[in-house]
Nucleic acid binder design. Sequence first.
DNA 1: CTTAGGG
DNA 2: CCCTAAG
Length: 596
Amino acid sequence: MTSETKDTSVTSFNEIANMFTSTFSEVDLALFAASEHEAIGMEHFLIEPKCNRNLVGVFDFESFHSQKFCDVEDFSGAIEYDEIKQYDWDAVHSNIAQEIQKEKLEFVGERQVAHDEVLNGESMRPTTGEEFILDAKPVDKVGNLDHGPCKESYLGNQGLESLPPDLNERDCTAAIADMSSGSVSAVHFTRNQNSPVLDQMTFQELLEAFRSMFGRETSVTDEHWLKHHVLLGLRNQVGSDNGLNLIKCDTTSYKTEEKTVCSCSSDSSVGAVDSINCILGDENMLVGWHAERKGLDALKTSSSEFSEVELCSLDEGDKAVVAKKRLRKPPKRFIEESLETKSRYFKGKSGALRSRKCPKGFGASQLICPEKSFKGSCIQVPFGLPVEEGHTKTTASYWESEDCRGDRLPSPKEELDTEPCSAPSPNRISEYEFVTRSNPRKGSSHRKHHISWSPSEVMKLIEGVTKCGVGRWAEIKRLLFPSSSRRTSVDLKDKWRNLLRASCAQLQSKRKELQPSSTVVARATEVGLVKLKQGKKQAVHRVPDSVLWRVRELAASTYPYGRGSNSEVSFTTPVAASFRAASNTMSVALSTTVSG
DNA sequence: CTTAGGG
DNA sequence: CCCTAAG
């Protein structure tokens, strides 16, 4: 639809309406479309709204425009043109407004292509087909147009706002027209950011541009001077783009909620405002803007029908998006991660879970490691860093794959810490773990977790299973992986699963040899732990078979939830375990085991 | 929330 | 590891 209406002269409302949608530059249009169909973040829209500028005059204000535009859009169909104007008038210069109202306004909303021509006030007419003229319809009629009102208001508003006092007397139409053209040019520049364009402009054009840009005319006849200023203005604008955008956002939020706004916006808005002031050099605009804003707000409130549909729909979500957007620099993932980490730490009790979603806001760096256990090595990573405490090598290296089938052994230290035998207290483990984890693991990519399981972890897991029984991942998690940043109960489960699988495979093969006699089993269990330590220390590669064995055993014995569980039972010593195992085949629950 | 299972 | 379904 874009191309069709391009060169069509406006004759009917429909056409006009279409034009709005279609006439905007493809880009703009695209945006529109996007916005319309998907209520994409406003920011998107806001950022792009340059298209509207054309109508308005003066790039002045993209922010303004956008804002207005949005606002207007919101009630576009619903609001009476008169009303809008009324607001405007009230807000700004009523006299001018009136004139404007009476007059038919012509807007040129052409695209860059035509800008050269357009620059000439006279050439506002569509010459290239790229540009189109919007004939302002009589007020009443305008109301019918979807976008009509917006434009109208723009003009009115913009004109009013941007028009310097001296212009009041001027023929509004003319003035507006001029502005339009000027603005257009300005816009173009802005958009293209091609100052070169200026070179091609005629003096007249420059004047126009200047006027539109600064809201006033200049008596200066120096072309260079004009160019320079225009250029500066453009740059300014461009430079302040962010600001503008921000402001837009701000505005947006404002509009919707009047004062709401996000904290962040406030500053930005300020900046934006400043920049705007700079650009315009005329505070009137701001005033007008604000005033208008109010009016619009009021209007908006009255008719919200379109707000959602409209491109600029400003719904909560959008606002939120906008707001968030600004805040959130780091990918959500990171945030989540960090939060997660944090929450985890905090979460003592339920501990097992990794709360995927953190209740807390995403804050910047949050850190947390409140607990004493890990203070030093907090995982906390500010944005940018992956929370993942990568596996540095330590752990990872040992057993790379989660499946322990691997053959690597755990690092000595880890092993020591986690020695089952030693039966490290949960705390200790946790602490240990924490350290282990946080430090070593950092390296890995953000990928959330893919933290390989360290031998110690595996051991702990096993321990946990032993104690708590299979299936009680949460509990195990809580007991053995309390502070561990990652490793949720689910993870444990998964790991267990993997271990089991691995063990099966490996053990089976081995078993053949070793043979699964009870003795063997016993031995396995018994030795297992020991071996684990040793093995780990010794061979980096070997996955502790013992571990696997253990896994297997445990799996067999403790599987059922209730079963194993004497959660409280002290961790069975290897001996005990072995004993048990030996005594009755693995069937006996190791966990239940022994107390003594 | 927790667990299990599937992707 | 992550996600989702189910209890």
